[in-house]
């Protein structure tokens, strides 16, 4: 950085005529901020509903695979596994319908609402940005570029670990659900091809389980990176998913 103050740091005269008039700019570290409306209301609503569904799905899904200890007393007094499975199916419906709604919104929303559903592998700039982002995470480069939507690394990770894995979980999930509703149900007709493809019913359970772990790992990394980026990057992330506005901490060119 040059010795002179960056253009976005405000001087005392910049405060004249604002609600901060009369205060000293330097101790306030007052700065000019650019704000962009990135995440529209349906996207935000979907994000948090989806997050809740994933938490419920992971917990109940794990318990279906490894149930809690046996309950004493009459069977008629309990409905533990029944409730666990009920919650899993209810959350799964929310996840699936939400996913469908999110796909539909991609047609109506802004350009950032489409970032989840593709990776621009044909663009040289994508690969360059991906490499830069890797260097930033390896502490080689200090600052990444600014992105209004997702950076290249984030877009790739979300596409693989959320979009594709989520679709896989929906397909395998409905295929497994058709065990109960029957092969002539719409679930059985629509997703009956999944189990033979994956090597049978038990194998489908297995891959559905692996898919859960992929999403759990994604959630861990996602929460870490957005928190870290929110603190130390050149733009806001967490609040952007709450109020929709992404604030940039500097106006410098990349």
């Amino acid at each position: 950085m040059a010795a002179s103050k960056p253009a976005h740091m405000l001087r005392d005269e910049d405060l004249v005529g604002t609600n901060l008039e009369g205060l000293k700019a330097a101790p306030l570290r007052a700065r000019r901020v650019t704000s962009v409306y990135v995440y529209e209301a349906p996207v935000r609503l979907w994000h948090w509903t989806n997050a809740g569904a994933i938490v419920v799905l992971a917990i109940t899904g794990f318990l279906i695979g490894a149930p809690p200890s046996t309950l004493a007393g009459e069977a008629s007094a309990h409905f533990q596994m029944g409730w666990i499975r009920y919650l899993h199916f209810a959350a799964a419906w929310i996840f699936a319908v939400g996913f469908l709604g999110r796909v539909i919104w991609a047609f109506f929303g802004n350009i950032y609402s489409r970032e989840l559903f593709y990776v621009p592998v044909w663009k040289l700039s994508f690969w360059r940005e991906l490499w830069e982002e890797v260097l930033v995470y390896a502490f080689v480069k200090k600052y990444a570029r600014k992105f209004i939507g997702h950076n290249a690394l984030a877009q790739l990770t979300i596409f693989l670990c959320f979009t594709l894995t989520g679709l896989f979980m929906i397909a395998t999930g409905f295929a497994l659900y058709s065990d109960g509703t029957g092969i002539d149900s719409w679930e059985g007709r629509l997703f009956g091809w999944v189990m033979p493809l994956l090597g049978g019913n038990l194998a489908t359970h297995f891959w559905h389980h692996i898919g859960m772990w992929v999403i759990i790992l994604f959630v861990i990394i996602h929460v870490y990176t957005v928190t870290r980026e929110d603190i130390s990057s050149r733009q806001t992330l967490i609040s952007a998913m709450i109020n929709g506005y992404r604030n940039f901490r500097d106006d410098s060119r990349d």
Binding site: F62, G65, A66, Y137, F139, F206, H209, I210, M212, W213, I216, L217, I220, I221, Y224, R228, S232
Partner: peptide, 23 residues
């Protein structure tokens, strides 16, 4: 599947902790 998943989560968690410390 669970042991693989938990091991992976542990490795990723530890990696992130180191990464967070450096950050």
């Amino acid at each position: 599947a669970d042991r693989i998943g938990m091991t992976a989560a542990g490795v990723v968690g530890a990696g992130l902790a180191v990464h967070a410390a450096i950050s």
